[in-house]
Amino acid sequence: DCSRLFDNDLPDGWEERRTASGRIQYLNHITRTTQWERPTRPASEYSSP
C-alpha cells in the first residue's frame, strides 16, 4: 500500500506517493505507470508502455 503525499510542485498529471518501506515514487495518471525519478514534464508528454 502507498500513502498519498501532496506536492503542488509536480507537473500536471503526476502524484507523489510513499511506499510501505518509505521510498517515494511518482505515479503518472495518464499512462498509469510509476517511476522512482521525480518527473520534470507533464504526464501527457510520456508515452504509454
Results as ranks from 00 to 15, higher is better:
15 E>C: 07
36 W>G: 09
27 L>K: 08
5 L>I: 15
31 T>L: 08
14 W>V: 04
39 P>S: 02
23 R>V: 08
3 S>R: 09
5 L>E: 08
26 Y>T: 01
35 Q>L: 06
25 Q>A: 09
23 R>P: 06
15 E>P: 01
48 S>T: 12
24 I>A: 14
8 N>G: 12
46 Y>K: 14
19 T>Q: 08
29 H>S: 14
13 G>A: 02
41 R>A: 15
15 E>Y: 03
22 G>K: 01
16 E>D: 00
36 W>V: 10
23 R>Q: 13
33 T>W: 10
23 R>W: 04
47 S>P: 09
43 A>N: 09
33 T>D: 11
35 Q>F: 12
15 E>F: 05
12 D>P: 13
6 F>E: 15
37 E>C: 05
20 A>W: 04
6 F>V: 10
34 T>N: 01
38 R>G: 02
27 L>A: 08
5 L>Q: 11
9 D>M: 05
1 D>N: 14
19 T>Y: 01
5 L>M: 12
35 Q>W: 03
19 T>F: 04
3 S>V: 14
33 T>F: 13
42 P>H: 02
21 S>F: 03
25 Q>E: 13
5 L>C: 05
18 R>N: 10
34 T>L: 07
39 P>F: 00
21 S>P: 04
19 T>K: 02
6 F>L: 09
14 W>E: 02
7 D>P: 04
21 S>T: 14
31 T>A: 11
21 S>H: 09
14 W>A: 02
17 R>L: 10
30 I>W: 03
31 T>M: 06
42 P>V: 05
47 S>T: 09
22 G>Y: 00
32 R>E: 13
11 P>L: 04
35 Q>A: 03
24 I>C: 08
23 R>L: 06
4 R>N: 15
42 P>E: 05
30 I>C: 10
42 P>S: 11
18 R>E: 11
43 A>E: 10
40 T>D: 08
11 P>G: 03
42 P>G: 08
44 S>A: 11
22 G>C: 00
14 W>L: 01
14 W>Q: 01
42 P>N: 08
45 E>T: 07
46 Y>W: 09
33 T>P: 02
42 P>L: 04
4 R>P: 15
19 T>G: 08
40 T>L: 12
29 H>M: 12
15 E>S: 08
42 P>T: 09
36 W>R: 05
46 Y>R: 09
23 R>D: 12
28 N>R: 00
33 T>E: 14
16 E>T: 09
39 P>R: 00
41 R>E: 08
49 P>G: 11
48 S>P: 15
31 T>F: 03
23 R>M: 05
45 E>N: 02
40 T>M: 14
38 R>E: 03
39 P>V: 02
16 E>Q: 09
29 H>A: 14
40 T>H: 08
13 G>M: 01
1 D>K: 04
25 Q>W: 13
29 H>Q: 13
10 L>V: 05
8 N>E: 06
18 R>F: 10
29 H>G: 12
7 D>L: 05
28 N>F: 00
43 A>K: 13
5 L>K: 11
14 W>I: 03
33 T>A: 14
10 L>Q: 01
7 D>S: 06
16 E>A: 11
30 I>E: 07
20 A>V: 12
15 E>Q: 10
18 R>K: 08
3 S>C: 08
2 C>G: 03
31 T>R: 07
9 D>V: 11
9 D>W: 04
28 N>K: 00
32 R>C: 13
27 L>P: 01
8 N>L: 07
3 S>E: 14
42 P>C: 07
44 S>F: 12
44 S>C: 13
4 R>W: 08
47 S>Q: 12
11 P>Q: 07
48 S>H: 12
30 I>T: 08
30 I>K: 05
44 S>W: 06
32 R>G: 15
44 S>N: 13
10 L>W: 02
19 T>L: 11
7 D>W: 04
28 N>Y: 00
22 G>F: 09
29 H>D: 04
20 A>G: 12
22 G>H: 00
48 S>N: 06
36 W>L: 10
13 G>C: 01
2 C>M: 14
32 R>N: 12
21 S>K: 11
6 F>T: 14
40 T>W: 05
30 I>R: 06
39 P>E: 04
37 E>V: 06
34 T>I: 02
43 A>S: 07
35 Q>C: 09
19 T>C: 06
34 T>R: 05
42 P>R: 09
39 P>L: 01
40 T>E: 14
16 E>W: 07
21 S>Y: 06
48 S>L: 08
16 E>H: 15
12 D>V: 08
18 R>C: 12
25 Q>G: 07
27 L>E: 12
49 P>S: 14
40 T>Y: 03
34 T>P: 05
23 R>N: 04
11 P>M: 12
28 N>M: 00
6 F>A: 15
2 C>N: 15
8 N>A: 07
6 F>Q: 13
47 S>D: 11
18 R>D: 04
6 F>W: 06
14 W>D: 01
24 I>T: 13
32 R>S: 14
11 P>D: 02
17 R>K: 14
22 G>S: 05
18 R>M: 09
4 R>Q: 11
32 R>D: 15
35 Q>Y: 08
27 L>S: 12
30 I>P: 03
13 G>W: 01
37 E>R: 02
12 D>W: 05
24 I>R: 07
8 N>S: 06
13 G>I: 00
25 Q>S: 06
9 D>Y: 10
10 L>H: 01
31 T>P: 01
41 R>I: 15
45 E>F: 08
6 F>N: 12
23 R>K: 11
13 G>V: 01
49 P>T: 00
42 P>W: 03
22 G>I: 00
14 W>N: 03
44 S>H: 15
48 S>W: 06
21 S>I: 00
10 L>S: 02
34 T>Q: 07
10 L>Y: 02
40 T>A: 14
39 P>T: 01
39 P>N: 04
37 E>L: 02
30 I>H: 11
24 I>P: 07
29 H>P: 10
12 D>K: 15
5 L>R: 10
39 P>Y: 02
27 L>N: 12
13 G>E: 06
22 G>N: 05
40 T>Q: 13
13 G>L: 00
8 N>R: 10
38 R>Q: 03
39 P>A: 00
19 T>M: 08
27 L>I: 06
8 N>T: 14
15 E>K: 03
41 R>L: 15
3 S>Y: 02
43 A>G: 11
45 E>H: 10
46 Y>C: 12
15 E>W: 02
19 T>R: 03
18 R>W: 02
7 D>M: 06
2 C>S: 10
15 E>M: 07
39 P>Q: 01
18 R>T: 08
4 R>A: 13
25 Q>M: 06
10 L>R: 01
12 D>Q: 15
35 Q>P: 00
34 T>M: 04
19 T>E: 13
17 R>F: 08
36 W>D: 13
48 S>V: 14
45 E>S: 06
20 A>D: 15
42 P>I: 07
9 D>C: 06
23 R>T: 14
1 D>W: 00
